[in-house]
Design a binder for these strands. Structure first.
Lengths: 261, 261
DNA sequence: GCAAAAGTGTTAGCCCTACACCCATGT
DNA sequence: ACATGGGTGTAGGGCTAACACTTTTGC
């Protein structure tokens, strides 16, 4: 026990993180030193199987070895936060389009076990990012696919660090954004049926958020969904029209509350 | 000039922040070291004069000496982010109630001139917080009031660091929150008239966001504003009823979109 | 023909908007 | 009395929710 504390202190001393006053107590009011990480909560939707997915990687190293976690990395010298988010994302997955925004920052002491137990060593702060990508376009980038994979949000295991909490934030952000912002079209393929869109909303927001026929007519009346004239047949039943999202027609509705749902 | 760079490098070396490879170039892929600050965007509304206010402090030290900035501080060892936000806030202002939430994190290289010019020294990351307080309850905490004061959001000077950008984020958050969340009651006094409430919305969202009589009946129908029966007279004209926000009656409307406006 | 999936139509009730109007008070 | 600010009422247009109905396909 005392050996462990001693080791911590030596390490802290060596990296000049922990300053002692002449009484051997840590100085009050001394600034904390941080390493800053980014963690990406990457969502996608499998329209066919109606599954909301999030991308997880299995940690190869300590701490939390073999736990699933969000793709994250520590920020390097000269690198922007968003740059770090893009870097780690592109190491795990290849994707054409991508929606990315900052989610939340977690930086309380003790959130990373690499911090010294007495909390006077280096601290690890995580800036989390929220991302959406098209399931069809995404290509996982691992030789060993067991290390990177999609997980159904409905069944997420205990994750490394405070990542379950980060997921809660991300999931809530996703639900909120769906209601007033056209992010659904970041997740859908270029051409989609209105049923695809409806299924996406149902998958994320729950089964009973709205009636299909009303959802349909409300969105069509808004005028930013363009019927391409093409039809697609999914087995039995009447073929569906393929639509395209027209960003230009949507522009005037920006910042208007509640266009969807 | 070269003396300055030398000073930076010595400082970086001393705190073990800048590692050189044998060629004298900074090592690639080396992690950045951060100091983490919090900056509070503290809003209040002067209901009488219809002014939206934000609290600024005048910087006493370099960099940006004598510029106005948000009350901010660097995070100390063992301190939570929110703890640091509360600490600096209570140094500048005494207040009974307080609404505080995280706003956004700014951490790109070069945002603080204390970073070495070549950007390979310590970096300064800022986690900004959004706060709302009651103007009547707030007591500025300065012997020298010229150093801490309310500023009309309509006329903000050039601020220190990237604080004008932070203000933009904060102002937008305020407007969004007003629409779907009961934060207005954090800013209003305990008892208020419906006209106070309406003036608050008008001040923040603009003159023509709604009709007073419709605003009034819509909110009253929702049932979380309790008429205390007390009247208050503001000079000439019919005295107004004083209302109180009933948080319990509001609870079922939590997370429901667009209860206001 | 029939089941399945896509798409259209209808109706009643609600809410939002834009006003007009009435009420209570100070001077 | 009348100006001033507080408060109520109402007619209409538009939107929503719920559900019935029609169309187009595969088998």
């Amino acid at each position: 026990m005392s050996a462990k504390i001693r080791a911590v202190n030596i390490d802290a001393y060596r990296s000049n993180k922990l300053l002692m006053n002449p009484m051997g107590q840590p100085r009050q009011n001394h600034l904390a030193d941080f390493k800053v990480g980014v963690d990406n909560v990457i969502f996608s939707v499998d329209t066919h199987l109606h599954r909301l997915l999030v991308l997880l990687v299995k940690r190869e190293d300590q701490p939390y070895q073999n736990y699933w976690s969000f793709p994250g990395t520590l920020v390097r010298m000269g690198e922007t936060l968003e740059g770090a988010a893009h870097r780690i994302l592109s190491e795990k997955i290849a994707v054409k389009n991508l929606y990315l925004e900052q989610l939340y920052t977690f930086g309380n002491p003790g959130r990373d076990p690499r911090e010294a137990p007495d909390q006077y060593g280096v601290r690890y702060l995580s800036v989390s990012y929220f991302a959406l990508i098209r399931y069809e376009d995404a290509q996982l980038m691992s030789k060993n696919l067991s290390q990177v994979s999609w997980h159904n949000v409905a069944a997420i295991p205990t994750l490394a660090f405070d990542h379950n909490q980060i997921l809660d934030y991300g999931y809530q952000r996703l639900r909120n954004k769906l209601e007033y912002s056209p992010i659904a079209f970041e997740v859908l393929p270029e051409l989609f049926t209105l049923n695809d869109l409806f299924q996406l909303y149902t998958t994320v927001l729950g089964e009973d958020f709205a009636d299909y026929s009303n959802f349909r007519s409300r969105l069509l009346k808004l005028g930013f969904l363009k019927d391409t004239g093409q039809k697609i047949s999914k087995g039995v039943g009447r073929p569906a029209s393929l639509f395209r999202f027209d960003a230009r027609a949507f522009a005037p509705l920006r910042d208007k509350p509640l266009v969807f749902v």
